[in-house]
């Protein structure tokens, strides 16, 4: 049994919210830089160059990479031998978000009720996914999610007969419909299987995988590679203004499902695919 103070969780979450919004993970940064070098469309290359410049300014001048500093999505993998002491864990997490968004000069983009729409003014609550795992560590992923691309994400309840081709069609349809709205180049997270809500969580988790690290499952890896190629043949391009860089990566996560179904979620993330991971 290991004891962790919830004040420590607050401190970590605060720092992670700030870090995520000022510094893209190295793999994302590298992917954008490589795409800039490879891009053959002049306007596309120009835009990718500006995105590189933008990342540099963000880090040097401490201005968020994007003004949409997102809704804080948090994955908390909690070892079952951990005991939390102090306040309630969920409150500690939200307090970290509150402090991070305040002290980090991040935008408060959350409304307390989806229809009344009054801003909560501190970017809480976060969307938190808990998982109980073996061991006595806590792994936290903070992934602030912007809504330009979130709005273009889709869930499709396919039929088993639709099979692999159906899944590919669904992904391509979502990316084409998203077009310029989702701030391409995008990262495409796909969840296949599970239930209605499970596939959406799988898709969100897929976005936190290091870019261009393909699935370990051979047939899934092939689908990821094929889809990435096909998406980059659409000529949507950087900023939706044409070019060969529409997506930087396609990540697919799968899960067992029901004999009657084939749920597919396509979670699109813009090039500001933020995630910070820490293990306590």
């Amino acid at each position: 049994m290991r004891t962790i103070e919830t004040t420590e969780i607050t401190k970590q979450i605060k720092e992670m919210c700030i870090e995520a919004n000022y510094f893209l993970p190295l793999d994302m940064k590298r992917a954008i830089e490589e795409a800039k070098d490879a891009e053959t469309s002049k306007i596309g290359k120009h835009i990718l160059g500006k995105l590189c410049e933008n990342m540099q300014i963000a880090g040097e001048d401490m201005i968020p990479i994007c003004q949409d500093t997102g809704m804080a999505v948090i994955f908390a993998e909690i070892g079952q031998d951990v005991h939390f002491e102090g306040g309630y864990l969920e409150e500690a997490i939200n307090e970290g978000v509150r402090q991070g968004y305040q002290e980090g000069y991040l935008r408060k983009s959350v409304v307390g009720d989806p229809l009344i729409r009054e801003n909560t003014k501190d970017n809480t609550p976060a969307v938190i996914h808990y998982q109980i795992v073996p061991g006595e560590q806590v792994k936290i992923t903070v992934a602030p999610k912007g809504f330009g691309s979130e709005n273009m994400s889709r869930v499709y309840m396919l039929k088993p007969a639709d099979g692999m081709e159906g899944v590919k069609r669904a992904v391509l349809t979502a990316v084409k419909e998203a077009g310029p709205n989702a701030c391409p180049p995008v990262v495409v997270g796909v969840g296949v299987g599970g239930t209605f809500e499970k596939c959406a969580v799988l898709a969100k988790q897929a976005l936190t995988r290091p870019v261009q690290e393909f699935s370990k499952v051979p047939y899934v890896r092939e689908m990821e590679q094929e889809l990435l190629r096909k998406i980059n043949e659409t000529d949507i391009g950087p900023g939706g203004l044409g070019g060969m860089t529409t997506a930087l990566a396609v990540h697919i996560n799968t899960y067992p499902t029901h004999i009657a179904g084939l749920p597919v979620a396509v979670n699109i993330c813009c090039h500001v695919n933020r995630h910070v991971v820490r293990v306590l």
Binding site: E53, M55, I57, A58, I63, G148, C183
Partner: peptide, 9 residues
């Protein structure tokens, strides 16, 4: 259109 996601720049 301005470049989406280039808010710092």
């Amino acid at each position: 259109a301005a470049i989406g996601g280039a808010g710092a720049l």
